[in-house]
């Protein structure tokens, strides 16, 4: 419950910081911290112009499932189920973009699919790695795991997970499907044809997603709570840093590198764990 109410606030603030920090890195002043909220409020007031009306349903379901995913996670439910719910949410967004039937949203949708294919293995391997250490897929059990923080047993998986975070947040070098800057060949890719309240929903969904994924980072340090929170925030800053340092990759490079990371770091880690067992 706390998550449902607090997550958009925290997520929105984080995005505000993101924009501020990015601006500072680029020697700009940057918008106020609360700018994302202003944006969303304004979007809600705008008229909702769409290509096909049904595309709004897909986005609404996307939002519902993202919230549901986060809810499952923070309720301490099964990690695999959380992943499946997240995937389902993402699929609705992609279908919505297909439905919107514009060349830009097509490209965005196909690239988003490729990105999903790129991060999915690593995310699943992360869950499996956590299971192998804690003997449970339940988030509640993993969070309550006493012993050395998971990160010491799962260093490879942790690094691999960070890599997928970069994809999941659609940050450079993986802002293939939908860029924050609408002046590129993509226009805005996936989200080109969404406007008004629908776009606001996508934005809010991203806030939820952000909090949920940082919550997952925290799981790696669950037995040391303060360190965990600190690292989660640090990871967020790192993601912003990488976003500003790298140019966008081609999709081929994105999927190849993501699968390579999952295969080497993720699988390597699991292999070692199973040999030690």
């Amino acid at each position: 419950m706390v998550y449902l109410l607090a997550a958009p606030l925290v997520g929105g603030l984080l995005v505000g910081w993101d924009r501020r920090i990015s601006a500072r890195m680029q020697s700009r002043q940057g918008p106020p911290i609360f700018q994302p909220f202003y944006d969303v409020f304004k979007l809600c007031k705008k008229e909702n112009i769409v290509v096909r009306r049904s595309q709004n349903y897909y986005v609404a379901l996307f939002l519902v499932f993202v919230i549901f995913t986060g809810g499952l996670f923070f309720a301490g439910s099964d990690l695999l189920l959380v992943i499946f719910a997240l995937t389902l949410a993402a699929i609705f967004l992609v279908l919505g973009a297909y439905k919107a039937s514009s060349p830009f949203s097509f490209i965005g949708a196909e690239r988003e699919l490729i990105q999903m294919m790129a991060y999915e293995p690593m995310v699943l391997l992360t869950a499996i790695g956590m299971y192998m250490v804690t003997k449970s897929f339940q988030v509640g059990d993993i969070a309550g795991y006493h012993g050395v923080p998971l990160v010491f047993l799962l260093p490879g998986i942790f690094l691999g997970f960070l890599y997928t975070l970069e994809i999941k947040f659609r940050k450079s070098p993986f802002d293939l499907s939908s860029s924050h800057h609408a002046h590129q060949e993509l226009v805005r890719g996936l989200t080109t044809e969404f406007s008004g309240r629908t776009l606001a929903m996508i934005e809010i969904a991203h806030w939820y997603e952000l909090v949920f994924l940082l919550g997952w980072v925290y799981l790696f340090f669950a037995s040391m709570p303060i360190l965990g929170v600190a690292v989660s925030l640090l990871v967020f800053v790192l993601v912003i840093f990488v976003d500003n340092v790298f140019a966008r990759l081609k999709w081929q490079a994105a999927i190849r590198s993501a699968w390579a990371v999952a295969a080497v770091l993720g699988f390597g880690n699991i292999l070692i764990l199973s040999l030690l067992r």
């Binding site: 279908l95 196909e110 699919l113 999903m116 999915e120 699943l124 295969a263």
Partner: peptide
């Protein structure tokens, strides 16, 4: 399990793409 995780993300790709084709107009 590594075969399953990679395999299932590939299945995801082609099914969603097909679904997308059906709904696009």
């Amino acid at each position: 399990s590594v075969f399953i995780v990679f395999g299932s993300s590939a299945t995801l790709f082609f099914w969603v793409k097909w679904m997308g084709k059906l709904v696009e107009v």
